[in-house]
């Protein structure tokens, strides 16, 4: 691949002249796209702004400046959604192309600021003091609405994490290594049930052809929750065999999903979880103490797996 490749393809008649003209200016660097750089700026802007606002909103409560800033934030959300509703395309069950490159970030900003302001107002006036959990549920419902209305994958994933946190489970790798993933006992069961339920809903929605491109995000979060819950169950209880069966079931499901969608992330999950499960089973039953056997086990199990993937490489090709 060099700067001459487009010309080479053109001369071989593999691409047409108009295509060559378009491609050549890009490859030769005559035209430079700063799309990703600007998107990164937008993302950082939203990140910093909402973090700052999240702190700012609870400071100097009651002072005049505080009231002004709250009003400014409310105006900002209204502005964002005014823009989104005015310029955005109508709702559709399919993918909707954003009208401008920054449309998605305006929606995201509006949604996040709205949630901050709403949370603050609830704190100040105590509308839901009796049912505090409802705040997260309402947040999640709001996010779901925005995600479907404006076809926004980012807000959808926020909605799923908010829904999970309504059930007190958190979907965040950062929590896994700090060891506070499941703070309360039996939360892993909630995680498993949540994972199965939401995945079922996602698949039903997909069968009805509603926002089919959302399914991956749903399934991804659900598998993470399901496997994390099942593996936790495997390690803590006397019921490990039940959890082992659950893990195997999940792996079969993930494997099928990976094959059907050609998205091999699920294959990765299935492999790692099945490996953990099987190793645990062997440790509990036949293989104990003999370190040489463990070395043999890892060589042959993983070697066999590699052989399998390479042997059937045509199965594992992306579309």
């Amino acid at each position: 691949m060099t700067k001459n490749t487009p010309r080479e393809l053109f001369e071989k008649g593999l691409i047409r002249e108009d295509q060559f003209n378009k491609i050549d200016v890009i490859i030769s660097g005559k035209v430079v796209s700063v799309f990703y750089e600007l998107q990164a700026l937008l993302y950082l802007g939203v990140l910093l702004f909402t973090t700052g606002v999240g702190i700012l909103i609870y400071m100097n409560i009651g002072s005049l400046g505080h009231l002004i800033s709250i009003s400014a934030l409310i105006l900002l959300t209204i502005g964002c959604f005014y823009y989104a509703f005015k310029n955005g395309a109508a709702y559709s069950n399919d993918t909707v192309k954003p009208v401008t490159p920054y449309f998605d970030y305006v929606v995201l900003l509006g949604a996040l600021v709205f949630v901050s302001v709403a949370g603050y107002l609830q704190f100040q006036f105590g509308i839901l003091n009796e049912n505090l959990e409802l705040v997260t549920l309402i947040t999640s419902v709001f996010f779901f609405y925005i995600a479907y209305r404006f076809d926004h994958l980012g807000v959808l994933s926020l909605a799923i994490t908010a829904l999970a946190s309504f059930w007190s489970v958190s979907i965040s790798p950062q929590k896994w290594y700090s060891g506070t993933f499941f703070e309360t006992a039996n939360l892993h069961i909630v995680a498993i049930i949540f994972g199965v339920l939401v995945a079922t809903i996602a698949l039903v929605l997909e069968m009805r052809r509603i926002k089919m491109h959302f399914t991956f995000t749903y399934l991804n979060f659900c598998s993470l929750l399901f496997f994390a819950g099942a593996i936790t169950g495997l390690f803590i209880g006397a019921w490990w065999f039940v959890y082992l069966l659950l893990i195997y079931g999940g792996c079969v499901f993930a494997y099928l999903m990976a094959m059907k969608r050609k998205s091999f992330l699920f294959l990765l999950y299935a492999f790692i979880c099945a490996y953990i499960g099987t190793t645990y089973l062997l440790e509990k039953t036949i293989l104990r103490d003999a370190i040489e056997i463990w070395f043999l086990y890892s060589i042959f199990s993983c070697g066999g797996f590699i052989y399998f993937i390479i042997k059937f490489k045509n199965y594992f090709k992306q579309k």
């Binding site: 997260t136 994958l153 994933s157 995000t217």
Partner: peptide, 25 residues
């Protein structure tokens, strides 16, 4: 620059800002 990846990053980094209110409560 995969859209699914971007969504995951967004959920991991921007999800915290409604927690502020809950912590206060």
């Amino acid at each position: 620059a995969n859209l699914n990846l971007q969504a995951f990053v967004i959920s991991q980094t921007l999800g915290g800002n409604q927690s502020q209110s809950n912590n206060q409560i």
